[in-house]
């Protein structure tokens, strides 16, 4: 464990909690892409199947359980409890355009052609593009609630910190995983436009509104 991975995980946890609290407190999922949340739930499900088969540490197990529970709770709130506030008209990204290439890539480019390995690879590739429906929805509505931008900021920050974690692990532990690094780079690059808007607008107290 290193400081980048720890702060990365805490940033990820913060994002997940912020989103859950936003929906719960405001009793509304306006501006939130349910499709992205379903993809994240799928990412955690396919990545944490080893939850019961291999014990790495209490931290690892506890965080995985929290991530999975929060992901499904968020999906339930969006499509169940507060579905009346779900903005389906703007959450129209065709996720099959993500799932099909990700499945093909996971089958073609992986470290081992074994079920657990392919599922892990699928989850890594899927996570790198899972935010696209959310970013697409914001571009369609032309704006985002400030709390939603904080959610996105911490979510984008987490994988950015993981990139530093991988540099650290390569340098100090001689450890390197090209699949995770490339997918992490793609994931972080997708946030660059948002990071720019967040830093130049939201941090200056303005509302995030895209030039329509």
């Amino acid at each position: 464990m290193n400081i980048f991975r720890l702060t990365g995980d805490l940033s990820h946890l913060a994002a997940i909690i912020i989103l859950l609290l936003k929906i719960w407190k405001t009793r509304s999922c306006a501006g939130i892409s349910g499709k992205s949340q379903i993809l994240f739930a799928l990412v955690f499900t396919t990545r944490y199947l080893d939850l019961f088969s291999s014990f790495i540490s209490l931290y690892n197990t506890v965080m995985k359980v929290i991530y999975i529970m929060c992901a499904y709770a968020t999906v339930y709130l969006i499509y169940g409890k507060f579905k009346a506030t779900y903005d389906g008209n703007h959450d129209t990204f065709r996720v099959e355009f993500l799932l099909i290439p990700v499945v093909l890539l996971a089958v073609l480019i992986n470290h081992a052609f074994a079920p657990m390995e392919i599922l892990w690879t699928f989850s890594i590739y899927l996570e790198s593009v899972a935010i696209l429906p959310q970013l697409f929805m914001i571009s369609k509505t032309g704006e985002a609630e400030t709390i939603t931008t904080h959610y996105l900021f911490f979510l984008g920050l987490y994988r950015t910190l993981y990139l530093f974690n991988w540099i650290w692990r390569f340098y100090f532990e001689g450890f390197f995983d090209l699949i995770a690094v490339v997918a992490g780079l793609v994931q972080t690059i997708l946030y660059c436009d948002f990071f720019y808007l967040y830093i130049t607008k939201v941090l200056k107290g303005k509302k995030l509104s895209l030039p329509a």
Binding site: N60, A112, Y162, N165, R169, F175, D177
Partner: peptide, 10 residues
């Protein structure tokens, strides 16, 4: 072996 080390990440 590098693979299993990654698996300690979330």
């Amino acid at each position: 072996q590098g693979r299993t080390k990654l698996k300690d990440e979330l």
